[in-house]
């Protein structure tokens, strides 16, 4: 039988996702960030903005803004939590799977929301490399 005939709770979130939606971490604007990156398109339903403050190759602060759903907000919270205090190299190694695993998983339909936060992080880190003139060590 095709999965779509029996699939239930396609849009159900894990408790971890809901918790980070209710009490998001690192949400808001940052004054004087080292880099800012934006990804997404409001027409497609979400837009994500990430701010990083990087000192001595270390991410000392990370914040984000989201025009998005709960998955987007929760992923933004988790991504910024996971990279805070890490070196740029460590942040570059972060995978989308690590983020979604930390969230206890996401509904398949919502994966693109998670990807958006991840893509924004990648873009921010690339921008930092370009700015500081150094490739990955």
């Amino acid at each position: 039988m095709p999965a779509e005939y029996t699939e239930r709770s396609l849009l159900r979130y894990t408790e971890k996702v809901l918790e980070l939606f209710r009490n998001p971490k690192n949400m808001g604007e940052m004054k004087d960030p080292t880099v800012v990156a934006v990804e997404g398109d409001p027409q497609c339903g979400d837009m994500f903005k990430m701010f990083l403050r990087i000192e001595n190759n270390k991410i000392v602060d990370a914040k984000f803004l989201s025009f998005g759903c709960a998955a987007n907000i929760a992923t933004g919270s988790m991504t910024t939590e996971l990279i805070k205090g890490k070196s740029v190299e460590e942040a570059e190694k972060l995978t989308i799977k690590q983020i979604t695993d930390a969230l206890g998983g996401l509904p398949a339909l919502k994966m693109h929301c998670a990807v958006l936060a991840y893509k924004t992080l990648k873009k921010a880190l690339q921008e930092y490399r370009a700015k500081s003139g150094g490739a990955s060590a």
Binding site: P24, M27, G28, V38, P42, M47, F48, K49, L65, S66, F67, I73
Partner: peptide, 11 residues
């Protein structure tokens, strides 16, 4: 709205 990157007045 405070945590959105989009300003409502610009939409």
């Amino acid at each position: 709205r405070r945590i959105s990157p989009i300003k409502p007045e610009e939409m």
